[in-house]
């Protein structure tokens, strides 16, 4: 093919409409966006309608949001340091065989569904047997710990994946200047990893905040064991409140505003996390 005809071809693609692969891909993208927009719009319209038409139980909404955040933060406070230490162990300290074993273990176990962890939690905490009922003081730490157990493997593997992307030649340069292993971790790996640690924190927060099963099961168990707890909305997180609302027909009007709030929170958290991940340390090879 001559240069002339190639030129013509290039010029023509921009001008005339041709039904080609690009059109199909565009249609697929558009369809995807429409579906996703439908979800968002559905929730937003529902929320706006509730806000305009009904007198909202603001107390319930606020309690649920605060509960979600507090429980999620508790879980991250436990899981993040442990995850960080595990990531340091795997990427900086461990010989390759144990590192591989460790990595495979946590990566595979990060897929364990939260409903299983909630079940194990109930078995171990023995909620059914205890008749004292449950104050939030007892429910919160239990929920946070179980959520931490759920999120720890994915947090650790998130961090490991990011630590591995730090260019090996940076570490090599540091060692070549006579740095000890510890100095290399503190002066080279940590500054490079700082932003991913923050990102991991937000990642964990989003994961734990959105989880339904664990808190729901704890709450159900508590509600069975004492009548007062079943009326006590102070124990709700946003997802549990939505599920209970839909299941038992309570608070229908609050469901959509709560869903919208958790959407906004999750968007904010994930975009904050993404901002932290844009760091120049990993650009190098």
């Amino acid at each position: 093919m001559g240069i002339e005809s190639t030129k013509e071809k290039l010029a023509s693609t921009g001008q005339t409409f041709r039904f080609g692969p690009e059109t199909i891909l565009k249609l697929a993208t558009a369809a995807t966006l429409v579906v996703l927009a439908a979800v968002v719009i559905f929730v937003v319209i529902g929320a706006v309608r509730s806000v305009l038409l009904v007198d909202l139980d603001l107390d319930l909404i606020l309690t649920a949001v605060v509960n979600s955040l507090v429980i999620a933060a508790g879980a991250v406070v436990v899981a993040l340091p442990v995850g960080l230490l595990s990531a340091l162990y795997i990427t900086e300290l461990a010989p390759s065989k144990p590192a591989k074993m460790f990595w495979t273990t946590i990566k595979v176990l990060s897929a364990v569904p939260s409903v299983v962890i909630g079940f194990i939690g109930l078995v171990w905490l023995g909620y059914y047997e205890s008749s004292q009922g449950t104050s939030p003081l007892r429910l919160y730490p239990a929920a946070s710990l179980l959520l931490a157990l759920m999120v720890y493997p994915s947090l650790a593997s998130f961090l490991i994946e990011h630590f591995r992307r730090i260019s090996p030649s940076l570490r090599a340069s540091s060692y070549a200047l006579g740095a000890s292993r510890w100095q290399t971790i503190v002066y080279t790996v940590y500054p490079a990893a700082r932003s991913s640690i923050a990102a991991a924190g937000f990642f964990g927060l989003g994961r734990t905040m959105g989880d339904t099963a664990i808190v729901l099961m704890l709450w159900q168990a508590a509600a069975r064991s004492s009548l007062t707890a079943s009326q006590d909305h102070r124990l709700f997180t946003v997802p549990t409140a939505i599920v209970m609302g839909a299941e038992l027909g309570w608070h229908h009007s609050e469901l959509f505003p709560m869903a919208m709030l958790i959407m906004i929170l999750s968007l904010a958290i994930s975009s904050l996390g993404r901002r932290f991940m844009q760091s120049h340390w990993r650009v190098q090879e």
């Binding site: 260019s167 030649s169 940076l170 090599a172 340069s173 540091s174 060692y175 070549a176 200047l177 006579g178 740095a179 000890s180 080279t188 500054p191 490079a192 120049h280 340390w281 190098q284």
Partner: peptide, 20 residues
């Protein structure tokens, strides 16, 4: 080890300054 590496400097093939 660290003393050895201080006394014997290695300059790698790909120059890789720290991002500082």
């Amino acid at each position: 080890v660290t003393e050895v590496r201080r006394r014997v400097g290695l300059i790698a093939r790909h120059p890789s300054p720290f991002p500082k």
